[in-house]
């Protein structure tokens, strides 16, 4: 029983981390219709940024998250304006190709710049934990989970209530109508992409505190984010949180009851099931 409680806690905390990873991907996908295959690479860059801030400037990774997010936002904004705007209305295939190219280039540049060594962001509290009776809650994961919830709810409120957020949602639903209301799409696209990449950067910082960063983590993280975004649905940031939690819990339980090699199968099984039964995601509007 204690073990089950512990595993559930593990799954929930893991799910929170998953949710932050997928948040930016889902936003960009939902609004710009770009399936960003380089998303994981941006998480990786965010991780390195946090690592540098922590190692060379001594900035705590959690306090450094806003810095990382802002820098990554800038990068995303520029990339969208400079490169990706050229293909924003192009077929999905082309966006796949270009973001794939981007992922390859970013990964390679990261290896040149940072070497293939593993980097960990290891502040003193990273290994500490809170014991609740027999159940242990790792500190760093709990904090990451907290950040995840704050970011998700923040995104949700932002999209629902702020002017920019409404404009973004309007563009996602109907570009022509949004234009009539004076929305400037190029700026808006760049803002959206920037926010998406900023979120990826923040996720990278969190990832570095609970796991380690090397130039090649991107592809796996993209795949994971993908699955989460689909399970949760693209319409609503809260869906992504649900998707992350579902995946985290299922993976943890699978490892416990079936075996450690079956974690991935379980998550893809859930993915197929969701796609067949509820293709717009658990919290998405039914098709």
């Amino acid at each position: 029983m204690d073990l089950l409680a512990q595993i559930l806690i593990n799954g929930i905390l893991l799910g929170g981390l998953y949710a932050v990873m997928a948040l930016g991907l889902a936003l960009v996908w939902g609004v710009l219709n770009i399936v960003n295959l380089a998303h994981g690479a941006f998480i990786m860059l965010g991780g390195y940024l946090s690592w540098h801030l922590y190692t060379y400037l001594g900035i705590d990774p959690f306090l450094g998250l806003p810095i990382t997010a802002v820098v990554m936002f800038g990068l995303g904004y520029c990339l969208q304006r400079g490169v990706l705007n050229l293909i924003v209305r192009a077929p999905m295939f082309n966006t796949l190709l270009i973001t794939f190219g981007l992922e390859v280039v970013l990964t390679y540049l990261a290896q040149m710049a940072f070497s293939a060594d593993f980097r960990t962001i290891n502040p003193s509290y990273a290994g500490s934990n809170i014991a609740l009776g027999p159940v242990v809650i790792p500190m760093a994961r709990l904090m990451a989970f907290g950040v995840a919830v704050v970011l998700t709810v923040g995104m949700w409120l932002f999209l629902l209530h702020s002017r920019l957020g409404r404009a973004i949602r309007a563009t996602a639903q109907n570009l022509v109508a949004a234009r009539l209301y004076g929305v400037e799409p190029r700026h808006l696209y760049a803002m959206t992409f920037g926010i998406g990449i900023g979120l990826a950067g923040a996720a990278g910082g969190l990832y570095g505190t609970v796991s380690q960063i090397d130039p090649y983590i991107g592809a796996t993280l993209t795949a994971k984010s993908f699955a989460i975004a689909i399970i949760g649905g693209l319409d609503n940031p809260l869906g992504v949180l649900v998707g992350g939690l579902v995946l985290g819990i299922i993976e943890s339980l699978t490892v416990l009851y079936i075996g450690a090699t079956f974690g991935d199968v379980a998550s893809f099984g859930v993915l197929v099931l969701v796609l067949i039964v509820r293709p717009s995601g658990l919290l998405g509007k039914t098709a």
């Binding site: 799954g11 790792p138 993976e251 943890s252 974690g263 991935d264």
Partner: peptide, 15 residues
């Protein structure tokens, strides 16, 4: 226990 190469989450196994 056998696990998947490149696994990043060991919380369940550790528990």
């Amino acid at each position: 226990e056998r696990y998947t190469s490149n696994a990043s989450d060991f919380n369940s196994l550790l528990s």
